[in-house]
């Protein structure tokens, strides 16, 4: 008998259809899931209603007749305080900011991480410590001096200025990510490449980067969601005509002009959240790995 009991504990748990603890666990989890899913549901149903119908029902009621009019309006004609060409402008602005920011920040951070993992020079660790501390400094402390620096080099208000800002503030977490990844690779590989006569850049490009696909993907996930979701830097460092999507969205929804069109607002909100949501659902476990690896991110 004792033998049998031991086997139970090791193997898969016997499936009991209904126990009190299980009931409590699943009920709690389901209630929590409702809390988490309700806003998504509300956004979607609201965005599919006509305005009169929104005024008639409550946020949870299903649309009587489904309309995609709000989505079209949110994308193409919704008004911010300044113009009426909808979120499309913000979307393309965000894309223009996102692509170079992701590429530049990952390029710089991978080189940093590589130098820190394999080519430590005197003072390298101090720089890295400062970098990590920098991740916790409230952005507000550094915002204005950076405005001045960007103005001095002629990039204030320019998309490239914002690209640099994103690369700077993405640097601590990404550098940590790459440093840890490179440190986990066998050091003998690096030594072998040096004996084979490869230099600093050749080792990085020919030997290490080709085996870094997993960490590059994690970094891309981290940066795409982070930069897409940015609001603060977008507001401070770009001009209204090149505002990213989040800023544009906020201006559309919270503009005080005219009657509030909740259905359009919700369609716009979903549209803005769509890119990070798609990244999240597609990447799955890698997203979790990204935030776990980058638990230092402030």
């Amino acid at each position: 008998m004792a033998d049998l009991a031991f086997k139970d504990a090791c193997g898969p748990r016997p499936k009991k259809a209904f126990t009190l603890p299980n009931f409590i666990i699943y009920t709690t989890l389901t209630l929590l899931a409702i809390y988490y899913l309700a806003p998504l549901y509300v956004m979607i149903v609201t965005s599919l209603k006509t305005m009169p119908e929104v005024r008639l029902g409550n946020v949870f009621s299903l649309p009587q007749e489904v309309t995609i009019e709000p989505w079209i309006k949110a994308w193409a004609t919704a008004c911010t305080g300044l113009n009426c060409d909808g979120l499309s402008r913000g979307f393309w602005n965000s894309v223009q900011i996102l692509v170079p920011s992701v590429v530049l920040s990952i390029a710089v951070a991978s080189v940093n991480g590589y130098a820190l993992a394999f080519w430590r020079f005197k003072g390298a660790n101090l720089l890295f410590t400062i970098l990590l501390f920098g991740a916790f400094i409230p952005y507000q402390v550094m915002l204005y001096p950076i405005v001045m620096i960007l103005r001095d080099i002629g990039l204030y208000g320019d998309v490239w200025g914002l690209v640099i800002v994103h690369s700077i503030f993405g640097m601590p977490i990404l550098t940590l990510l790459f440093r840890n990844y490179f440190s986990s690779l066998p050091e003998e590989l690096f030594k072998a490449a040096r004996v084979d006569g490869a230099g600093f850049w050749r080792i990085l490009i020919r030997v290490l980067l080709p085996m870094s696909a997993p960490i590059v993907v994690v970094a891309i996930i981290l940066q795409v969601t982070g930069i897409w979701n940015d609001f603060l830097f977008g507001v401070v460092y770009t001009r209204p005509e090149s505002y990213p999507m989040t800023v544009q969205l906020n201006n559309i929804v919270n503009s005080t002009f005219g009657e509030k069109e909740y259905n359009v607002n919700m369609a716009a909100t979903i549209l803005t959240g769509l890119v990070p949501l798609v990244v999240y659902f597609v990447s799955g476990k890698l997203f979790v790995r990204g935030i776990a690896a980058g638990a230092v991110k402030g």
């Binding site: 899931a33 988490y36 806003p39 897409w228 659902f281």
Partner: peptide, 23 residues
Amino acid sequence: FRTVFLYPYALSFVVTGLTWQWM
């Protein structure tokens, strides 16, 4: 369940704020 509990973290604060303003 984990996917459901974590997805809001992928969303921006702006989206979160506007959603809950409506809720």
